[in-house]
């Protein structure tokens, strides 16, 4: 049996390596960082870790409904496709920086894509 995407990326250790790099990129990105004003950074980092675990194809308990309710207040503030794309772009840049191949990055992006409609409340 071939390794899962999560195993190919390096599992939990890879998530740990990526999460701070990713969260710093998001916070420094003026296209999206307004959405993170005033949030508790530590619980946000925990959420980013859960997000990356999911994006890496790892074990997670998140459902479409969770993503929908969790982002509803941001959709009200104008969260749209351009912001979703910016987050995915930051994720890609993070993985490139960590030396992950374009092929695997493509797989990660493919895992994220189906969450778009739930996150944007479509």
């Amino acid at each position: 049996m071939s390794d899962s995407l999560y195993e190919k990326l390096g599992g939990e250790a890879a998530v740990d390596a990526a999460v701070n790099l990713f969260y710093r990129k998001v916070l420094a990105d003026d296209r999206i960082n307004d959405f993170f004003d005033g949030v508790d950074m530590e619980s946000q980092l925990a959420k980013q870790k859960a997000f990356l675990t999911m994006a890496f194809g790892g074990p997670n308990n998140y459902t479409g409904a969770d993503l929908r309710t969790g982002h509803a207040h941001l959709v009200e503030r104008g969260l749209n496709d351009s912001h979703f794309d910016a987050v995915v772009e930051n994720l890609g840049a993070t993985l490139t920086e960590l030396g992950i191949s374009d092929e695997l990055i493509g797989e990660v992006v493919a895992v994220c894509e189906p969450t778009r409609n739930d996150i944007l409340g479509k």
Binding site: S43, A46, K47, K49, A50, N60, N61
Partner: peptide
């Protein structure tokens, strides 16, 4: 929430 030690 997460029940896997990440959300605290």
């Amino acid at each position: 929430a997460c029940q896997q030690g990440s959300c605290q």
